[in-house]
Simulated assay, not measured.
Amino acid sequence: MNFPLESQAQALRDAVEQIRAAEPKARIRAIADRLDVPELALVAAGCGGIRARRLKEPAQDILKELGVLGRVMALTRNQWAVHERHGRYEDVRAGKSMGIALGPDIDLRLFFNIWGSVWAVQEGGRDSLQFFDRAGGALHKVYVTEETDRAAYEALVNRFLDPDPAWPEYGELPPPEATPVTVAPEALRGDWLAMQDTHEFHGLLRKHQIDRLTALRGAGEDLAQRVSNDLAERVINDVAAQAIPFMCFVGNRGIVQIHSGPIARIMRAGPWLNILEPHFNLHLDTTAIAETWIVNRPTSDGWVTSLECFTTTGEMVVQFFGARKPGVPELASWRRLLTGYCAQPLAA
């Protein structure tokens, strides 16, 4: 690859080597944060023995072809939660600004307005496709596993290789959509009660120009009820103990990844609470949770209840629902679990 700033790339490689010499298990994202550079800079520079090959954009063209790989591991994360799901990419639809994957295992919601470059990466003997935003942050990664069709992976990479790769450009992401109203208006409650689908909630926020937490704080305790911040851990342990299939949502500005199903194996490691299933892993920094809410939304299928966790700056850490499909009522066992945590009754 032709780097216009090869000296800077070498400086990054040297810096990473120094950190890894002292901390062999340091992860690339943490190293990038320490060096105050985006993760993509370290990938493109080949730091820590990485071999990276830039692929042709747009990312949508590659995403539509991922089904040929067979079973892979899909990883989506934010700063406080990492979501890993094994399975196949199925029913992938990727338009100019939005997309979706609706497989039974890999279930994604895609928002392409901030997506940037795509790279085929080899690190520590592992191959992956890595998708970055326009600021150089990692949005989504697709790892080759023992169940992946490796020949199909190499063919896909070769098909999309950029014939004239350049050092990636990255800058600031556009700010999130402004939400100037800081107190929920009276009309919010009526619009909330009129919802027929949980997906209407985003439109409700846009209509009233408020953020999610402002809406939760102003809807009324029968629709949104603040609870203890240790409830995320309690819910995870309770759904495991009671064998309740649930949905776990983790996302960033470019993608949301969803697991649906039961869990059993849970392990705590310092600040991180870990779900460790063969097909699904969640790594959740519970110390980052500053507000936790049980949220109650009406739909044409009945009431749908979620647990939602936020940082001090109002960013979503993780979100849990009972496992369900459109057209199917919420699991009674999930509803009983969440209403049992509430100090005040929920609307029903």
Rank of each mutant, 00 (worst) to 15 (best):
I100A: 06
L35Q: 08
Q60L: 01
A135G: 14
R206T: 14
S333Q: 14
P185I: 02
N252K: 02
G218R: 04
L331N: 07
A30N: 14
F131Y: 08
N237D: 13
C248K: 09
A347K: 08
P163W: 12
T148F: 10
L205A: 13
Y153S: 00
A101I: 07
R109W: 11
E147H: 14
R27H: 10
A22Q: 14
V318C: 12
W334Q: 02
T299K: 08
T182L: 12
E172L: 11
N2D: 14
G99M: 08
L205Y: 06
H283Q: 03
W334V: 00
D301I: 02
D230T: 13
A215V: 02
V304G: 03
E123F: 10
K141M: 08
A94H: 11
R324D: 04
R85F: 05
R159H: 13
K141Y: 05
V142I: 15
D105A: 15
T145I: 04
L193H: 04
P104Y: 04
T339W: 06
A22R: 13
Q122Y: 02
P4E: 12
H283P: 00
V227I: 13
D211Q: 01
I31L: 08
S228F: 03
P180R: 03
S228D: 15
H283A: 00
E84D: 11
F132P: 00
P262A: 13
E39M: 04
H283G: 00
I255A: 15
A178K: 07
T286H: 06
A30C: 04
L216R: 01
Q209I: 01
N158K: 10
R212H: 13
I19D: 05
A81R: 10
Q196W: 03
D36N: 13
M73N: 06
D222I: 06
A30K: 15
Q122K: 09
A94G: 06
K207L: 05
A348E: 15
V118C: 02
L282P: 01
D301S: 15
Y89H: 04
A348R: 15
A21P: 06
D164L: 09
E186F: 08
D36R: 13
P262V: 13
R297K: 15
V317P: 01
E291A: 11
I19P: 05
V72F: 08
F112D: 03
L338Q: 09
G99H: 10
I263E: 05
G125P: 08
E233G: 15
V328L: 02
A21M: 13
R335F: 06
A120R: 00
A138H: 04
E65G: 00
W115D: 06
G99D: 06
Q60W: 02
R189L: 09
E39W: 07
